[in-house]
């Protein structure tokens, strides 16, 4: 069984989790052109190596972030979103 270390619940079977996709900066809605939006919405980087992803623990409805190696499927580190985002933070500028 593959184990995911959840920052809230500790080590749990991977079946309790859903992957929410790569962590990417949201374009500025006032300035982004159509191509930037399309890239943000539809295109994945699909990189080989360590990527940063959103993960969701289903029983607690809890979102967190994991650094995962897509080549070896090793989970390098998991942490709370507040390490990257402040609740009142402005959206990242493109």
């Amino acid at each position: 069984m593959k184990i995911m270390p959840c920052p809230l619940n500790g080590p749990r079977p991977i079946q309790e989790f859903t992957c929410g996709g790569e962590v990417v900066a949201t374009p500025n809605p006032d300035r982004a052109d159509a191509e930037t939006w399309a890239d943000y919405l539809f295109l994945h980087h699909n990189a080989a190596g360590i990527v940063r992803e959103w993960w969701y623990h289903v029983p607690t409805s809890f979102w967190f972030i994991a650094d995962r190696n897509t080549v070896t499927d090793e989970i390098v580190r998991t942490f709370l979103p507040r390490e990257l985002f402040r609740p009142d933070a402005q959206r990242d500028q493109p």
Partner: peptide, 25 residues
């Protein structure tokens, strides 16, 4: 799937996990 033995899950412990495939506390 969570170890519920007293050594790992003493009185006062809480697990929010899957129980018979249902989300449970």
């Amino acid at each position: 799937g969570v170890d519920m033995r007293e050594s790992a899950f003493p009185v006062g412990s809480v697990a929010q996990t899957s129980l018979a495939r249902l989300n449970a506390v």
